[in-house]
Computed example of a mutant assay.
Amino acid sequence: MSELRNLITDVPGLRVGNAGDEKLKSGVTVVLPDEAAAASVAIHGGAPGTRDVALLEPEQTVPAVDALVLSGGSAFGLDAGSGVQAALAEMGRGFAVGPARVPIVPTAILFDLLNGGEKDWGPDNPYKSLGRQALEAALSGKGQDFETGTAGAGIGCTTANLKGGLGSASARTKSGATVGALVAVNALGSATVGDGRHFWAAPFERSSEFGGLGLPSPLPSNTSEIRTKLDTISPGANTTIAVIATDLVLSKGELKRLAVMAHDGFARALWPSHTALDGDLIFAVSTGKRGLVDPLAEQVELGALAAATMARAIARGIYAATIRDGDVKPSWAERFG
């Protein structure tokens, strides 16, 4: 069995593309399945921003998606989905309605309008173009080994005390199925413990992927102190958005449960999470390359592994972030080396 790259693209049948603008301090990330894939969603934050998400509920008709989009730009970023949809239509992909085809491209956005970037773009919203560019990147030779940290939808992300970023991680179940996570970390809260460099996700770390620091011992006296962005930004100015993926054949209902369980990774890696001011959302997608042998047992293991993988991806996104001119928050590397 091949070694894992520790990216969501370890799940067979998935590609990822990033696009961004350094002056804008914002970007877009596209998850592209090789063919339409079953998907669902779980939204546990109080301030989400979405496009074409209601159709992912298990009782809705559309059976599969053509792409998933994570974007900066707050509500302006929803146009990224339009750019991806238009490009996929040109490729002949989409949900068939008679002779017409409508690409299904659920999109989630995060707020990065106050991060120091140049947001005065005038009449031409840049996100439709960034969506197209991200799709092109997914289709290129970079579609398997994509950049994390300050890349794509992670370019403009921040947390309470540090720069956020785009993170990814993967793992395999005992039976050999693959689970992968991709996350743009723009949380109201913090991914690190107290004032120190240790990550809340430390218990799940593999191979020193975010520094191998473990948890602080003893825990600092201010461990339970709540750190947020409330003193600098307004409601809706946050959101951690993610994709959890597997090659196991799962229905939309089973994918809904996988997304719900993957949210435990947010709670393990961010303090606090799922607040009224975050739009925390996880898409779940199956490429359907591998059948279930023991459905209930495998789904329990998959869900727990998904949460751990998501927690790791969050820490990896913060750890990989790099400093840029005009940033309003330090990167983990800048602050802790």
Rank of each mutant, 00 (worst) to 15 (best):
S2W: 10
S2I: 10
L7W: 00
L7Q: 14
I8P: 05
D10R: 03
G17S: 06
D21F: 05
K23L: 14
K25C: 06
S40H: 04
V41Y: 05
I43D: 00
H44E: 10
G45N: 11
G45H: 10
P58N: 05
P58L: 07
A67T: 13
L70Y: 13
S71V: 10
L78N: 09
A87S: 12
L88V: 09
E90S: 07
A100W: 12
A100P: 01
R101K: 15
R101N: 05
A108S: 15
I109Y: 11
E118T: 15
A134Y: 13
E136P: 05
A137Q: 14
G141V: 13
D145S: 13
F146K: 05
F146N: 01
E147K: 15
G149F: 07
G152T: 12
A160D: 07
L162H: 09
S170I: 03
R172W: 09
K174M: 10
G176A: 09
G176C: 08
G176D: 10
G176E: 08
T178V: 15
N186I: 12
A187H: 12
L188K: 13
G189I: 00
S190H: 03
V193T: 01
G196F: 01
H198F: 01
R206V: 15
S208W: 10
S208Y: 10
F210C: 09
G212N: 10
L213K: 04
L213C: 02
P216I: 02
S217F: 13
T223Y: 00
K229W: 00
L230V: 14
N238M: 03
T239C: 02
T239H: 01
A242V: 05
A245H: 02
K256W: 11
A262M: 05
R268L: 13
L270T: 06
L270D: 05
T275H: 14
D278P: 11
D278H: 07
D280T: 08
D280S: 04
L281I: 15
A284P: 09
G288N: 00
K289A: 14
K289L: 07
L292W: 09
L292T: 03
V300H: 05
L305C: 03
A307K: 04
A308F: 04
T309H: 09
M310W: 04
A321Q: 10
T322Y: 00
T322K: 14
R324S: 11
D325L: 08
D325S: 13
G326M: 07
S331R: 02
G337Q: 14
G337Y: 03
